[in-house]
Design a binder for these strands. Structure first.
Lengths: 233, 233
DNA sequence: TCGTGTGAAGAATTTCACAGCA
DNA sequence: TGCTGTGAAATTCTTCACACGA
């Protein structure tokens, strides 16, 4: 699909934004928020890239996907660019988020301030376990998962954070989708195979540590073969 | 650097493994562990890819970087491939991990079983706050950060999980590096700029939610311009 | 026949380099 | 002069397609 699109040089087509770029938009925004707080007015692609370890050309390409944002000879106006990125990423408004699974990870995520700060409001808590249902965290009470549909409608829940045990993840994802939630942040180390339209982003903390271990191994052990890693105990 | 390497077709050069491949190795291993538990003996690149939503050619390319692992007409021997990937990723042995920062996130990560299961043993806890130092979690007592060097040596700590407030992250990373720890999993939403050799993997939970919001936005709002997102409320 | 390993083609992403605006 | 926007080149990653081993 997407044959030869004529080079009608639309300011740009957000639908064509490379996946790799999307991952960097958050980084740009994160840094811009800092600069904005600090009262700085403009920044060049060069400086912005320097702070994030990204080339200046890359920064310009990335930002260019959303129309001409920069001002030649000046750089990017921070307030304006921040607004644009917030709108692109959807953080210019609040999202109502369901947190599902109140085990260790779930409770921690509830306490983690980073979500709220970026416009993701945890508005309802759910768990499968009758022992846990009814317990109170902050100003919220844990509901049983069977109430998901009703509360999704009532509270206008749009996203869900899945912090449930791996074997339950797929089932819960299906319920979530059926309830009308449109996106899921999944912490279970398994691939979710869900009926239809549901945006999924998965975070596997174990995998991240493995990536780190791989990196360390490669850096510290310049062995060039398939031998075991040295003891190192 | 790395000019034109002659095509001496070494079985493969682990140093040349594409970054993208590395991210998939954990996925392969994760699925192989399941199959291994289930007692399955072999699997084809086709089946393995199907389970993970990766093309069969991609699977073969990825696995090929570590020498010929497959058996034509048979597939990959699960036990053998699992062993190889564990060795490549460094999970064929245990790692001693320091958990630094015992706030909400830190406490949760401590309770999260996924690390231990994959060979990452949390062996020491640290915090900056004197109020927190001395408190006990499981069979571990929280130490003050100033004891990092000593304990790193004593306990053979190799990796650290950073769950500290953003403003402290860089300072802590520097201490970690000075103590002799070689890799860090960073949860603070900031880029760590550390003196020298230290492997860093960062996870920004807020960014992941932003990625999700972007995805939902794009899927649900086929608007083609820079207009505000609709209310949707 | 089934299924790997792998050059070669193709697609995606990044870097280069420079015209042009403020 | 400073700095963006952007084609074109370079690089990296993925898919294709097929020879060959079990």
């Amino acid at each position: 699909m997407n044959k030869d699109r004529p080079k009608t040089s639309q300011p740009t087509d957000p639908l064509a934004t490379p996946k790799a770029t999307i991952g960097r938009l958050s980084l740009y925004l994160r840094h811009l928020e800092n600069l904005f707080q600090a009262g700085q007015e403009t920044i060049s692609s060069n400086k912005l890239g320097e702070a994030l370890d990204i080339s200046d050309a890359q920064v310009r390409k990335d930002l260019g996907y959303f129309g001409p944002m920069g001002h030649p000879g000046v750089g990017y106006r921070i307030a304006q660019l921040r607004e644009k990125l917030r709108s692109v990423l959807g953080t210019n408004r609040d999202w109502n988020v369901a947190l599902i699974g109140m085990g260790n990870l779930g409770r921690a995520l509830f306490g983690y301030g980073g979500f709220h700060r970026r416009g993701f409001i945890i508005s309802a808590l759910f768990d499968q376990d009758p022992q846990v249902v009814g317990s109170v965290h902050g100003n919220l009470t844990v509901h049983h998962i069977s109430e998901l549909s009703v509360l999704t409608r009532e509270l206008g829940l749009q996203l869900a954070i899945l912090a449930v045990p791996t074997p339950a993840a797929n089932d819960v994802a299906t319920r979530v989708q059926a309830a009308g939630i449109v996106g899921v942040l999944n912490f279970a180390p398994t691939r979710l195979t869900v009926p239809k339209d549901l945006s999924i982003v998965s975070v596997d903390l174990g995998s991240e540590l493995e990536r780190l271990a791989f990196d360390v191994n490669r850096r510290l052990i310049p062995s060039d073969d398939d031998t075991q890693a040295p003891p190192l105990e």
